[in-house]
Design a protein around this nucleic acid. Sequence first.
DNA 1: AGGAAGATCTACT
DNA 2: GTAGATCTTCCTA
Length: 189
Amino acid sequence: MILPKEFYERDTSKVARELLDKLLVRRLKETRMEAAIVETEAYYGEDDPASRAYNGVKNYNSVMWGEPGRLFIYNVHRYWMLNIIAHETGEVGGVLIRAVEPLKGIDRMLMNRPVEDVRELTNGPGKLSVALAVAKELNGTDVTSEEAEVFVLDSDLEPEIAASHRIGVREDLKEELRFYIVGNEFVSR
DNA sequence: AGGAAGATCTACT
DNA sequence: GTAGATCTTCCTA
Protein backbone atom coordinates (compact mmCIF):
# COMPACT_ATOMS: atom_id res chain seq x y z
CA MET A 1 0.00 0.00 0.00
CA ILE A 2 1.18 3.47 -0.80
CA LEU A 3 2.01 5.72 2.15
CA PRO A 4 -0.64 8.48 2.34
CA LYS A 5 -0.07 12.18 2.88
CA GLU A 6 -1.00 11.80 6.57
CA PHE A 7 2.10 9.66 7.08
CA TYR A 8 4.25 12.68 6.27
CA GLU A 9 2.13 15.15 8.21
CA ARG A 10 3.85 14.36 11.53
CA ASP A 11 7.02 15.25 13.38
CA THR A 12 9.96 15.13 10.97
CA SER A 13 12.24 12.86 12.99
CA LYS A 14 9.41 10.41 13.64
CA VAL A 15 8.78 10.18 9.91
CA ALA A 16 12.52 9.79 9.24
CA ARG A 17 12.66 6.85 11.63
CA GLU A 18 9.51 5.19 10.28
CA LEU A 19 10.61 5.49 6.66
CA LEU A 20 13.27 2.84 7.32
CA ASP A 21 12.56 -0.41 5.49
CA LYS A 22 9.82 1.25 3.46
CA LEU A 23 9.95 0.72 -0.30
CA LEU A 24 11.08 3.56 -2.55
CA VAL A 25 9.73 3.13 -6.08
CA ARG A 26 11.05 4.94 -9.15
CA ARG A 27 8.96 4.66 -12.32
CA LEU A 28 10.70 5.51 -15.56
CA LYS A 29 8.56 4.84 -18.62
CA GLU A 30 8.58 1.03 -18.97
CA THR A 31 11.07 0.38 -16.21
CA ARG A 32 10.47 0.26 -12.51
CA MET A 33 13.13 0.37 -9.85
CA GLU A 34 12.55 -0.50 -6.21
CA ALA A 35 14.78 -0.06 -3.20
CA ALA A 36 14.39 -0.33 0.56
CA ILE A 37 15.17 2.82 2.53
CA VAL A 38 17.94 1.97 4.99
CA GLU A 39 19.28 5.35 6.15
CA THR A 40 17.60 8.75 6.66
CA GLU A 41 18.19 12.12 8.30
CA ALA A 42 15.66 14.64 9.62
CA TYR A 43 16.07 18.33 8.85
CA TYR A 44 13.94 21.00 10.45
CA GLY A 45 13.22 24.62 9.60
CA GLU A 46 14.73 27.99 10.34
CA ASP A 47 16.03 26.96 13.79
CA ASP A 48 18.13 24.11 12.38
CA PRO A 49 21.58 25.36 11.30
CA ALA A 50 22.11 22.33 9.04
CA SER A 51 18.78 22.71 7.26
CA ARG A 52 18.36 24.15 3.82
CA ALA A 53 15.51 26.14 5.35
CA TYR A 54 17.84 27.85 7.87
CA ASN A 55 18.32 31.03 5.88
CA GLY A 56 14.67 31.46 5.02
CA VAL A 57 12.64 30.96 1.89
CA LYS A 58 14.62 30.93 -1.35
CA ASN A 59 13.67 30.00 -4.86
CA TYR A 60 15.14 26.55 -4.61
CA ASN A 61 13.95 25.56 -1.11
CA SER A 62 10.39 26.86 -1.02
CA VAL A 63 8.86 23.37 -1.09
CA MET A 64 10.15 22.87 2.47
CA TRP A 65 7.40 25.20 3.63
CA GLY A 66 4.82 23.45 1.51
CA GLU A 67 2.69 20.33 1.62
CA PRO A 68 4.10 17.18 3.24
CA GLY A 69 4.58 14.22 0.91
CA ARG A 70 6.37 16.09 -1.84
CA LEU A 71 9.92 15.71 -3.09
CA PHE A 72 12.54 18.32 -2.24
CA ILE A 73 15.64 18.05 -4.39
CA TYR A 74 18.67 20.26 -4.02
CA ASN A 75 22.25 20.31 -5.13
CA VAL A 76 25.43 19.70 -3.16
CA HIS A 77 28.72 19.78 -5.03
CA ARG A 78 27.91 17.84 -8.17
CA TYR A 79 25.08 15.76 -6.78
CA TRP A 80 21.34 15.89 -6.15
CA MET A 81 19.94 15.12 -2.70
CA LEU A 82 16.58 13.37 -2.46
CA ASN A 83 14.33 14.54 0.38
CA ILE A 84 10.68 14.02 1.21
CA ILE A 85 8.88 16.88 2.88
CA ALA A 86 7.57 15.84 6.29
CA HIS A 87 6.39 18.09 9.10
CA GLU A 88 3.42 18.84 11.30
CA THR A 89 0.94 21.44 10.11
CA GLY A 90 2.50 24.88 10.26
CA GLU A 91 6.03 23.53 10.70
CA VAL A 92 8.92 23.22 8.25
CA GLY A 93 11.07 20.18 7.57
CA GLY A 94 12.05 17.22 5.43
CA VAL A 95 13.66 13.81 5.46
CA LEU A 96 16.86 13.22 3.51
CA ILE A 97 17.13 9.72 2.06
CA ARG A 98 20.80 8.92 2.65
CA ALA A 99 20.96 5.29 1.51
CA VAL A 100 18.80 2.55 0.00
CA GLU A 101 19.13 -1.17 -0.68
CA PRO A 102 18.46 -2.03 -4.36
CA LEU A 103 15.78 -4.71 -4.80
CA LYS A 104 14.30 -4.52 -8.30
CA GLY A 105 15.55 -3.00 -11.53
CA ILE A 106 19.14 -3.32 -10.38
CA ASP A 107 20.28 -3.75 -14.01
CA ARG A 108 18.84 -0.36 -14.82
CA MET A 109 20.47 1.23 -11.79
CA LEU A 110 23.82 -0.17 -12.86
CA MET A 111 23.36 1.40 -16.29
CA ASN A 112 22.87 4.75 -14.61
CA ARG A 113 25.79 4.24 -12.25
CA PRO A 114 28.22 1.47 -13.18
CA VAL A 115 30.06 -0.01 -10.19
CA GLU A 116 31.92 -3.24 -9.47
CA ASP A 117 30.28 -3.93 -6.13
CA VAL A 118 26.49 -3.57 -5.81
CA ARG A 119 27.02 -2.39 -2.24
CA GLU A 120 28.57 0.77 -3.70
CA LEU A 121 25.55 1.43 -5.93
CA THR A 122 23.22 3.36 -3.61
CA ASN A 123 25.04 3.72 -0.27
CA GLY A 124 25.08 7.53 -0.22
CA PRO A 125 22.66 10.37 -0.99
CA GLY A 126 24.40 11.49 -4.18
CA LYS A 127 24.89 7.92 -5.34
CA LEU A 128 21.28 6.81 -5.02
CA SER A 129 20.04 9.84 -6.96
CA VAL A 130 22.29 8.93 -9.89
CA ALA A 131 21.31 5.23 -9.74
CA LEU A 132 17.58 6.04 -9.61
CA ALA A 133 17.81 8.83 -12.20
CA VAL A 134 16.51 11.43 -9.79
CA ALA A 135 17.34 15.09 -10.44
CA LYS A 136 16.06 18.62 -10.09
CA GLU A 137 13.10 18.16 -12.46
CA LEU A 138 11.34 16.06 -9.81
CA ASN A 139 11.51 18.83 -7.21
CA GLY A 140 8.06 19.46 -5.76
CA THR A 141 6.37 16.35 -7.17
CA ASP A 142 3.88 14.43 -5.05
CA VAL A 143 4.99 11.04 -3.72
CA THR A 144 1.58 9.97 -2.44
CA SER A 145 0.18 8.88 -5.80
CA GLU A 146 0.73 5.65 -7.75
CA GLU A 147 0.84 7.85 -10.83
CA ALA A 148 3.92 9.63 -9.57
CA GLU A 149 7.40 8.97 -10.91
CA VAL A 150 8.58 8.45 -7.35
CA PHE A 151 6.50 7.08 -4.48
CA VAL A 152 6.88 5.05 -1.29
CA LEU A 153 5.15 1.81 -0.37
CA ASP A 154 4.40 0.68 3.16
CA SER A 155 5.90 -2.50 4.59
CA ASP A 156 5.33 -4.72 7.60
CA LEU A 157 9.01 -5.00 8.42
CA GLU A 158 10.17 -3.83 11.82
CA PRO A 159 13.89 -3.21 11.47
CA GLU A 160 16.33 -2.74 14.31
CA ILE A 161 17.04 0.99 14.25
CA ALA A 162 19.98 2.99 15.56
CA ALA A 163 20.41 6.78 15.71
CA SER A 164 23.44 9.04 15.45
CA HIS A 165 24.34 12.63 14.69
CA ARG A 166 23.92 13.77 11.12
CA ILE A 167 26.82 13.33 8.75
CA GLY A 168 28.86 16.13 7.23
CA VAL A 169 26.99 19.05 8.79
CA ARG A 170 28.92 22.07 10.07
CA GLU A 171 26.79 22.64 13.13
CA ASP A 172 24.38 19.98 14.37
CA LEU A 173 21.51 20.13 16.83
CA LYS A 174 21.90 18.25 20.11
CA GLU A 175 19.33 15.64 19.11
CA GLU A 176 20.44 12.64 17.08
CA LEU A 177 18.61 12.98 13.78
CA ARG A 178 20.23 10.32 11.62
CA PHE A 179 18.56 6.92 11.58
CA TYR A 180 19.73 3.68 10.02
CA ILE A 181 19.06 -0.05 10.02
CA VAL A 182 21.53 -1.91 12.22
CA GLY A 183 23.79 -4.26 10.28
CA ASN A 184 22.52 -3.31 6.83
CA GLU A 185 25.23 -3.52 4.15
CA PHE A 186 23.96 -0.50 2.24
CA VAL A 187 24.19 2.09 4.99
CA SER A 188 26.77 4.75 4.06
CA ARG A 189 30.24 4.70 5.69
C1' DA B 1 32.62 37.46 -9.94
C1' DG B 2 33.26 34.86 -5.84
C1' DG B 3 32.16 31.56 -2.41
C1' DA B 4 30.00 27.74 0.00
C1' DA B 5 27.82 23.35 0.04
C1' DG B 6 23.76 17.61 4.12
C1' DA B 7 29.33 14.44 -1.24
C1' DT B 8 32.29 11.42 -3.86
C1' DC B 9 36.42 9.70 -6.06
C1' DT B 10 41.18 8.76 -6.11
C1' DA B 11 45.39 7.88 -4.24
C1' DC B 12 47.68 6.99 -0.96
C1' DT B 13 49.63 5.68 4.30
C1' DG C 1 40.77 4.29 6.84
C1' DT C 2 41.99 9.08 5.83
C1' DA C 3 43.43 13.36 3.12
C1' DG C 4 43.04 16.10 -0.69
C1' DA C 5 40.98 17.32 -5.19
C1' DT C 6 36.97 17.71 -7.45
C1' DC C 7 34.84 21.68 -10.92
C1' DT C 8 28.11 21.90 -10.27
C1' DT C 9 24.47 24.85 -8.77
C1' DC C 10 22.64 28.54 -6.47
C1' DC C 11 23.23 32.37 -3.38
C1' DT C 12 25.23 37.07 -2.20
C1' DA C 13 27.70 41.15 -3.60
